[in-house]
Every structure is written in structure tokens, then in C-alpha cells.
Amino acid sequence: MSEPLIEAEAVEKTYRFFRLSDVALRLEAGQILGFVGPNGAGKSTTIRILMGMVRQDRGSVRVLGRVLPQDQAAAKREIGFVSEDMQLHGAATLEWHMRFVAAIYPGWDADYAQTLLRRFNLHREQRIKALSHGERVKATLLLVLARRPRLLLLDEPTTGLDPVARHEVLAELMDVVRDERRGILFSSHNTQDVEQISDQITFIDRGRIIDSSDKEAFLDRWRRLNLEVPAGLTVPHLPGTIETTASGRIAVVTTSAYTPGMEEACVRAGLTVRDVQRMTLEEIFVANVMSHRQEREQ
């Protein structure tokens, strides 16, 4: 197997009112990593460290085999970075920006840029300040995608996009990983986008990584069991129990370590299993964040 695109371990960064602690991230070639967290969780800070734009206080960061922040100049040539606060020149046209990026990056693919203009329904002569929010996001993505960088670091690429623009952007991201040597890390608080296109998912909250695994494993191991508990009986201990809510004879158990054996354990304890539900990534994310916050506060 080829070396990972991103390998970060025990990364720490302390600010006056915020602290990133013990952050570990890994992205293999050919994969998409969804980096999910509430606002202010540390997603943007982490991405800036991966870009060499912010220097970590402690911990090791390797991106595309380069050590950061020391080798950031070499790494940046092969990284495409897009963030919400990226500044384009409002008075200049998209054409001007395309020429500018093409002059800096030898990998610029003019044919692909042309294809993207068509797919995103953008025009070379458009001035940046005349673009809508969605068009501006697509223009920024175009400028990065047409360089064909091996690694894309995208900070909230789909935030604020309408459903059609979101569809266009996700389609382009999926097109990138048709090439097994390339990969994408994208941060989002939109769990629907992450659930759709990510191979790996990492949750971050309050500066700490709270969970990380491949998407299918995530969706498989989290379940909600709806149980009927006859009077005088109690719910047996089930592995990975995150939360148990009971009202009357109905109990709902949320577990992060589901196995079919759990249903048998409930039946043996005299309970009736009414239903075992899969959870959406959104439900998993919220349950996960809440339980970690409770744990830390205790």
C-alpha cells in the first residue's frame, strides 16, 4: 500500500481561549475523510495545521510524505486548499484568476478547467463580485480542482449551497477519487454530505477527536433498541450503551457496539425486542458528542 496522504499524531495547539489536544488524523490514498464537528470544535485550526499555515505546539504532522511545518512549501504544491474565507479579487474576472493560478502551478489543466466551467455553469468573463455565494464557492473550487492536486483540503465546501450546487460539487469530489492516488479531507457540520461521500469519518468536539472509523463500521455498530420491559424487570447491561431512556414499559437503548447477540440477551432477561433501528450519521454524531461532553463534565 502507498503511504498515507495525511498522518498526524498527538497534535496540540493552545490559544488563549481554545485548545486543540491530542489530535490524530489519517487519510489513505484513494479515500475521502469527512471531518465532522460543531462550530468552534477545531476543524479549521486542524486544517490550517495540515496546510502548514499554523504551526502546532506539539505533535507530528506528515502530509504527502512531507514533514510540516518544515516542508510546507513542497507540500503545498500538491495540495488544493479551499476555505470559506478565501479571498478572490472582487473586481477581477474569473478568467483573470484562472490565468493567475495557471501561471503559478505547472499542473494546471486548461481542458479540465473548461469542462468545469461548463459543469458549474460559470463564465470566464464574470467578475467575482457579481457572483452569488454558490457561484463563488464553485469558482474557488474550479481554481483548485483544475490544478489536479493529489490532496484536497476543503473547509466546509458545501456550507450555504443550494441543493443543485451541492449536487454539482459532490459529483466533482467523487470524480477526484476515481484516481486511487488522490484523496480528500473535507470538514463539515452537514452530516448528510459526509454520510454520502466519505469513506472515513472523524468526529471532533471542543478540540478533541472523539471518534474515528470507517463509515460502514460507524453505521453498523450504532443502533437503537426499542424494548418492552415487563413490570419488575430491568434492562440487562449491554456493551457500548451510550444512553438508556425509559418511560413506563418502553425503554430505548442507544449502543455504539451493536451485535445481534444483544437481542438474545434482552429476550433471555425477559424483555421483548420491538425494533432495532439503524441510526443516521446525524443521530450518531449528536449522541456521540453529548455522551462525551457528559463524561468529561463528571
Binding site: Q31, L170, A171, M174, D175, R178, I197, D199, K215, E216
Partner: peptide, 17 residues
């Protein structure tokens, strides 16, 4: 797997499964 994943816009790992 990668071509179908791109066509239906669903992650590679899901199509692989």
C-alpha cells in the same frame, strides 16, 4: 467500484461493501 461510486455519488467504501 470507483466508476459506480462516482456515477451514483456514494462513497467508494459503500459500493465496495
Amino acid at each position: 467500484i470507483r466508476a459506480l461510486a462516482a456515477a451514483v455519488q456514494v462513497s467508494v467504501i459503500t459500493v465496495k461493501r
